[in-house]
């Protein structure tokens, strides 16, 4: 309440923070996920976006069907060899800085289908992954937890080029 009271004055207000913090705060709280719904996990992803779990509480309700408008790719489901190149292509179409979440055992390692002749054993073989959300399928709560981890990662990033956590490092 103190902040609101403070803002509620006649004078102009000044908030002092670093540019990085302001930028990361803004980016972290408005993550636009790309709906890479492939299989079972996609249903739980929709659940996370719908009534009960309401991903909007974390600023990520804007599920985009186009990679060009999003900054977080949630790979939800089994990636087959036939789909693998498409996933990579879609990842390349996303603007930097971009993040990838591997949702579910299949996206992490092939999961229950790892024995199969047509399943890619983990999307980290083709694209870099930031957060792994285990489960088969993960509950929406787990997905939200994963989203918070992405936000945490975003908030630690630096604008200095020589920093370890440079925002575009490795991109």
């Amino acid at each position: 309440m103190g902040l609101i009271d403070g803002l509620n004055t006649k004078d102009d207000n000044i908030l002092i923070t670093s540019l990085e913090a302001a930028l990361n705060w803004g980016r972290g709280n408005s993550v636009w996920p790309f709906t890479m719904g492939l299989a079972c996990c996609a249903i739980e992803m929709i659940c996370a976006g719908a009534s009960r779990y309401d991903i909007a509480r974390f600023g990520s309700e804007v599920f985009r069907p186009s990679p060009r408008q999003s900054d977080l790719m949630i790979v939800a489901g089994t990636v087959t060899y036939k789909m693998a190149m498409r996933v990579k292509k879609l990842y390349e179409q996303m603007p930097d800085p971009k993040y990838v979440m591997a949702m579910g055992s299949c996206a992490i390692s092939g999961g229950i289908h790892a024995d199969s002749y047509s399943v890619l054993r983990g999307i980290d073989k083709i694209i870099p992954v930031d957060v792994y959300v285990p489960g088969c399928p993960p509950r929406p709560d787990a997905l939200l937890d994963g989203l918070m981890l992405v936000q945490k990662k975003m908030k630690q990033e630096k604008l200095r080029k020589n920093s370890d956590r440079f925002i575009l490092a490795g991109k």
Binding site: L38, A39, G77, T78, T80, K82, M83, R86, H113, D115, S116, Y117, S118, V119
Partner: peptide, 14 residues
């Protein structure tokens, strides 16, 4: 089709 073909029928045999 086949972008989600996971070979379940073959896996079931083992």
């Amino acid at each position: 089709l086949g972008y989600l073909h996971r070979g379940v029928e073959k896996n079931l045999e083992s």
